[in-house]
Design a protein around this nucleic acid. Structure first.
Lengths: 187, 187
DNA sequence: GCTATCAATTGCCAAATGACAAAAAAGCAA
DNA sequence: TTGCTTTTTTGTCATTTGGCAATTGATAGC
């Protein structure tokens, strides 16, 4: 819980009263490996701050093949923010890659915070645009690198994460086949 | 100017008074082909709504090679939103690919609007997260497609744009070499 | 019209990656 | 442990893409 607060404080100021208010709205939730935090076609009605575990945001093509858009892990928010905000169906799945624990804000709880805490929306605007810009740059950068460079960059940028996710999921994040990644890994 | 207003109205409500306020803060600006709207290392102090022309958001590697992250054209906002909001140096260039005209909001003008118009920040939060999510998904999708598919998808998704930008810039957007794109184009 | 310049096309070959299949390894439950 | 399932590794081969260089094409200035 302290980590959530210090994460939020990076993006704006909060007094003790506001912090207590935030803590009162956060509920601890456990999600087992393989289960979904939110699903395509459903409206995302909650936003989570991960305290333990790894999620992946992914989608499936008509052949049932799954593609990982990105991973999210400890001390970051995970949500389909557009679905959550506008109450429109989500286009993607958020799947627990490992057993996970998160602090969850319901739609109602989140709106209470928006109405009570001055600057709460601004904090989320900052977090949203900062995070999304980084994700976008990451994908865009990968596009002009070869597979080996992308893998090395991943190892460097997300130390330890490669050992926590299945090779096949990492491969689809990197935009290569599992076989190619296996060969690259052999170096 | 009407197009700017109707674009904004897609993301939130505005009354006549607010619309007049917005219009009073927008200044028409012309940027010749090849010039920059904002530059890496400088703080982006304005945000533009394009009425005519095409920009590209790009960066350069140490060898001076330029890479196009994405294109922005008529009836869309163009800005380095993180640099603009937090007044930190931009990491990228926004370059006019053709002669361009835009409606420009200065930092001061934009803040006046934030302070005067209830919901102005929300409108921009929506626009920002909607646009960035789409950019992110576009790059992420391209990563798992081959070059030919990416090109066809570009043609379909941005009809006419391929004829307005140099082949080399389009190639770097697609993550391939100019030679490869030339060959693909021959079909 | 001539020339300089830059962008685009094309040819050639090598390297990277994918497709498919089989084998090996790892995980998991009884 | 044993057997079953899933994931990962490995082999072979076809395809895609890049690198490089030469050629062609377009444009602008003289």
């Amino acid at each position: 819980m302290e980590e959530l607060i210090s994460y939020l404080l990076q993006f704006g100021n909060l007094n003790q009263e506001q912090i207590a208010m935030i803590q009162s709205k956060a509920k601890l939730k456990t999600i087992p490996k393989g289960a979904y935090f939110s699903q395509a076609g459903k409206i995302a009605d909650k936003i989570g701050y991960i305290t333990e575990g790894v999620f992946r945001v992914c989608y499936y093509d008509k052949a049932g093949e799954g593609y990982t858009r990105y991973f999210v892990y400890e001390n970051r928010f995970v949500a389909d923010i557009n679905s959550f905000r506008d109450e429109v169906p989500s286009a993607e799945y958020i799947e627990a890659v490992t057993d996970c624990k998160l602090l969850v804000f319901s739609k109602e709880g989140f709106e209470d915070l928006s109405n009570t805490i001055t600057g709460w929306s601004d904090i989320f605007l900052k977090i949203t645009s900062y995070v999304m810009e980084n994700k976008m740059k990451a994908s865009s950068n990968m596009l002009v690198q070869d597979a080996h460079t992308r893998y090395l960059h991943f190892l460097e940028h997300y130390p330890g994460l490669a050992n926590r996710v299945p090779l096949s999921m990492l491969a689809s994040y990197l935009g290569i086949t599992a076989s190619s990644l296996s060969r690259i890994r052999k170096k």
